[in-house]
Amino acid sequence: MRVARSSATLREVVATLGKLALAGGVFIAIITGYFLFTTWQHGHAPLPGRIATGGRCTVWLVGSSSMHRWENAERDLAGWTVYNRGIEGARLSELTLRLTKTRGEPAPAAIVLYAGENDIADGADPKEVARELADLAKALRVRAPGSALLIVSMKPSPTRWRNRPAQLAVDAAMSRFAAGMPRTAFVAAGERLLVDGRPGNFYRDDGVHLMEQGYRRWSTPIIAGLRRARNNECR
């Protein structure tokens, strides 16, 4: 009798464990499927931000989180209607892909591009980063052939200071690239964030992203470049 009861109990335990394993497998499958779908959907969406309208003083901010987190860009770039198309944590491959999905919007008067810092931080080769950044700039030029394009130099971030030589190599390559492209300029804004040759006190606690005063300082050569591109008509 005890043996039969023990066998029945064992079967119940096994059945319960089987149900739990099945439920766990279904749950994992749902979560994995949702993650894969949202990742695919995110990568195949257009550049973020409100739908842009055309105009003689419109500017797109395209790039990674340094653009995405520029909350006071409208104030810092006074005279311009700003469309922030930045993507948090973006790499060059994502920006290029999402640009191809951005259709049906009028081209802006100008585009400010900041990208590649995350790729360098991930250990990408500077030559490859420069090539991908140039390809993205060319794609923007095709997308908006009449727009002024400003390519902004890399930020000398405190927690990424070890990457500075690689960043400068990309900057040098992009400066040469911009010189050979129509309506394109390289903006050495990163230098504004240095104090005595080191990153100044312009960064948030993570040592990567700018505080408000950092953006104000960073924006000075950018707004100067925009004004040159539009002959000071946007003030």
Rank of each mutant, 00 (worst) to 15 (best):
G116A: 12
W80R: 01
S7A: 15
L77K: 09
A185W: 04
L47V: 03
Y34R: 13
A229L: 09
T184Q: 08
C234S: 02
I30Y: 02
P165S: 13
E12L: 13
L99E: 09
A178Q: 03
E212Y: 05
L193F: 11
A78R: 12
P199Q: 03
G49Q: 05
S66W: 07
V208S: 03
S7I: 14
L150F: 13
T102M: 06
E105T: 05
A229Y: 13
R183Q: 13
N72D: 11
S6T: 15
L194W: 07
E74S: 12
A121E: 10
D119L: 14
N231C: 04
G146Y: 01
Q41A: 12
D76C: 15
S64I: 01
K127D: 14
F37P: 03
L113W: 05
G25K: 06
R227Y: 03
N163E: 07
R204V: 06
L226Y: 13
G33N: 09
T32W: 14
I111G: 07
A148L: 07
W161R: 11
P165H: 15
E117K: 03
T53M: 05
S65K: 07
E132G: 02
V14E: 05
G24L: 13
V208R: 02
N72E: 11
R204Q: 15
K138A: 15
E12F: 09
L20A: 14
D76K: 15
L193G: 01
A224D: 10
L36R: 15
R91L: 08
E88D: 13
G197M: 13
R50G: 15
Q167A: 08
A90P: 01
E233N: 00
R11K: 09
E117D: 14
R198M: 13
S147G: 03
L133Q: 07
T58V: 01
D196E: 12
L92N: 02
S64L: 09
K127L: 11
N72V: 01
V62F: 05
T39K: 13
N201R: 10
E233R: 12
G24D: 11
P108T: 00
Q167H: 10
A173F: 01
A173Y: 00
